[in-house]
């Protein structure tokens, strides 16, 4: 009657289920309005007479709002909920007690988070960059930096959702306090923050200097984001296997 569930099928089944679970009207509305704030800022930049170099200013807005707030917060909301919500409300058992390997469940959850988060971040940011009169390089840099940010943050927050019961506040603490305060004042702390690498990507690809905490070269920044994602997913699979499931 049954046959083994292949890894690809496990990923697809988990992905399909979780995309459906993650896409609630409330979440979408809240996070779309966050993206709308960036577009609004871009409109302001485009309309302002005081802005001397809009192409540069809009990249600074993409940095200050997009990479610092929109990318981590959207990733946090969806990635931490992908498996964290299931754990919290007791439905994880319906994925956990199945003949599917743990890594494929984690990969499905990660892809579900990306499916929702990538368009919710890159589209408003790209639109904002265009509205704000960014150069073509600036628009591409914005999309690439946001995408790598979502890739890294989402994996880390999938893991966080499996590690602790209240991942949102810990994730916000990481974004606001660790990346927002400590990483600004300490270089070692900055090196341990995803934001430094996404900002480096934005700065390098748009050729707009963004200051001391954005000085990694492009390949290093890409590698760190990929490494963070892969490492977090591997740890999440291990964590899922050892999890106490309700």
């Amino acid at each position: 009657m049954t046959q083994s569930v292949s890894t690809v099928r496990s990923v697809l089944l988990t992905h399909r289920l979780l995309v459906r679970q993650l896409l609630t009207p409330g979440r979408l509305l809240a996070l779309l309005s966050l993206g709308a704030v960036v577009v609004l800022a871009a409109v302001g930049v485009a309309a302002s007479d005081e802005v001397e170099d809009p192409a540069r200013t809009i990249i600074e807005v993409m940095d200050g709002l997009g990479l610092v707030l929109v990318v981590p917060v959207v990733s946090l909301v969806f990635a931490s909920a992908s498996l964290g919500d299931l754990r919290e409300d007791g439905t994880l058992v319906y994925l956990w007690l199945r003949p599917m390997d743990r890594l494929s469940v984690v990969a499905g959850a990660y892809l579900a988070a990306l499916t929702v988060s990538l368009p919710l971040t890159t589209l408003p940011l790209a639109a904002a960059a265009l509205v704000g009169k960014a150069t073509v390089d600036g628009v591409i840099a914005t999309v690439v930096a946001a995408s790598f940010g979502v890739l890294a943050y989402s994996a880390a927050f999938v893991l966080l959702g499996l590690m602790i019961r209240n991942p949102i506040i810990w994730g916000l603490a990481y974004v606001l306090v660790w990346e927002g305060i400590f990483a600004r004042f300490s270089e070692p702390v900055g090196n341990a923050a995803v934001r430094g690498y996404t900002r480096s990507l934005l700065a390098n690809l748009s050729d707009v200097g963004l200051g001391p905490a954005a000085e990694a070269n492009t390949s290093t920044a890409v590698l760190v984001c990929v490494f963070v994602a892969a490492g977090s997913l591997a740890m999440a699979a291990v964590r899922l296997n050892r999890l106490e499931v309700d």
Partner: peptide
């Protein structure tokens, strides 16, 4: 979903 995740043919 339960059937699919169990690999029911």
């Amino acid at each position: 979903l339960a059937a699919q995740t169990h690999g029911v043919v």
